[in-house]
Amino acid sequence: MKDNSMSSRIFDAFNCAFLAFLALLCFMPMVHVMALSLSDSVSANTNAVLFLPKGANFEAYKMVFGNPKFLRAFGVSVFRTAVGTGANLLLTILAAYPLSKEANQLRGRTLIVGYFIIPMMISGGLIPMFILISKIGLMDSIWALILPGACNVGYVIMMMNFFRGINKSLLESAVIDGANEFVILFRIVLPMSMASVATIALFCVVAHWNEWFGGTIYLNARDLWPLQTLLKTMMVQLDLTGMRPDEIARIKLLSDRSFRAAQVMFATVPILFVYPFAQKYFIKGVTLGSVKE
């Protein structure tokens, strides 16, 4: 497979350079935001900042951290991410384990699988969901962000496939030793599946941390807004009907770009922390999730 001809080397050089350019394209917007967040607002607002901070300072971050609104929203996000991920994992495991059994061990398995799969194919949609949440009194409750998605059937199927890969004879020996299914699940199957649980947990953490739409429709009380919802409502509300580009540019200047950039960094840094050590699990999740049943 080694080919060291001239044309091959030239291709390698171009290929590596091109891919590096692509990687930069993915990365530079965040560098730009970081540079803005660390710059003084005059430089930021006069477009003097590209990828390096000008007049470096932490004023914007002081504004974010000095504002109870952001800290509270950060707390709400942490809470919903922790509790939501916990609920997700518990329900996913509880559904996936019985479904990983064969039909002769779980009578009616086909029907039960059907019950869980149908909602993947058809959903009531936004409006019936909204009416449901308001009728059962979850409006203005943090549980409106946690309960509706708590049993994600996609994760259940992933987890079921993980469980099916476990050596059956081990479980059968446990049955002979008198262990019941709860004991088998929590003492034997789960400890063997920690990598898979971690994979799904990471997907849940990212999904909960990033979710913002639920907050904008179910929560009127601003105190309950998670960070992403708060940032959504603070985005520049562009109503540009009939405006000329230069007028819009002036409106953009009025907003403080370095402050906004610091807010973005504030919401993104937690993801950056999870990211490096989580990668192998993410890749595993994508490829194993597609395992044929």
């Binding site: 518990l90 329900l91 996913t92 509880l94 559904a95 384990y97 019985p98 479904l99 039960i112 019950y115 869980f116 149908i118 909602p119 058809i122 959903s123 009531g124 949609g125 019936p128 969901m129 449901l132 059962i136 309960l147 509706p148 998605g149 708590a150 049993c151 059937v153 259940v156 299914e181 709860f182 699940l185």
Partner: peptide, 18 residues
């Protein structure tokens, strides 16, 4: 084990479908 997931799916998937 299936009870809790089934109830959540019923409330938040089947009721909206209805």
């Amino acid at each position: 084990m299936l009870a809790a997931p089934a109830i959540i799916v019923f409330i938040f998937s089947y009721i909206p479908i209805g």
